[in-house]
Write a protein that binds this DNA or RNA. Structure first.
Lengths: 105, 105
DNA sequence: GATAATACATTGATAATCTACGTAAAGATA
DNA sequence: TATCTTTACGTAGATTATCAATGTATTATC
């Protein structure tokens, strides 16, 4: 399941800055509660993606004074997302053929 | 990319018996040449799936006298494929939302 | 004052991945 | 007949990914 973390995180950050806790919520919301990521699973991935140069972070203070580490996607990350998207769609196309379903099913 | 080996292999074997070399060909064909698996990458996955009980194997001799190890999907494997499919479609649905595309694009 | 929610992090065991390498036979080509 | 390509299987081992478990701390709610 977690093999999909990279495209999902990059896609979310392409929509705009976000932070760890909120990313988990967004994934949960967008999936209708099906995808529930743990924080212990997400943070190492965020650190790895930052180390690889796909995202970058800055500490910010929210309205209520809470510290948050906001991540944003880099130019390199955008290119990587395009590649990830191509890969995903390639596999998706094959699976759709094998499953004999319409892609929306 | 290789995170997709499991659903792909199980889906192919659900269509009928097959063997390592042919599976690589099928994936290549179905993807229009985009997905090219190496044998050294596939065989360990086949062994793992067999060990986990999702597929089973038997040695057979082809028309030209060549030895082949044919794999077929087990009942447990069929159940696992259903689960894999659900997982895949959950992620797919989220990505489609984020990418703002029709699933066929 | 206690509990839940928010928000970050690391550690470390387990599992997955993939390149590189090895074997061998059949078929094609020169 | 010698060589190359294709078919067909395999393992080893380094690298990487995964995830549960655990820790810290603040804010919000009850």
């Amino acid at each position: 399941m977690a093999a999909s973390t990279k495209p999902l995180i990059l896609s979310i950050l392409k929509e705009g800055k976000s932070y760890g806790y909120l990313i988990i919520q967004k994934v949960k919301d967008l999936s209708g509660g099906i995808l529930e990521w743990s924080d212990g699973m997400l943070y190492p991935v965020l650190h790895r993606l930052e180390k690889e140069g796909y995202i970058e972070s800055e500490w910010m203070i929210s309205e209520n004074g809470r510290k948050r580490k906001y991540y944003s996607i880099t130019e390199q990350g955008k290119l990587e997302l395009i590649a990830e998207k191509e890969d995903w769609l390639s596999v998706q196309a094959v699976l759709v053929k094998l499953w004999g379903i319409l892609p929306t099913e």
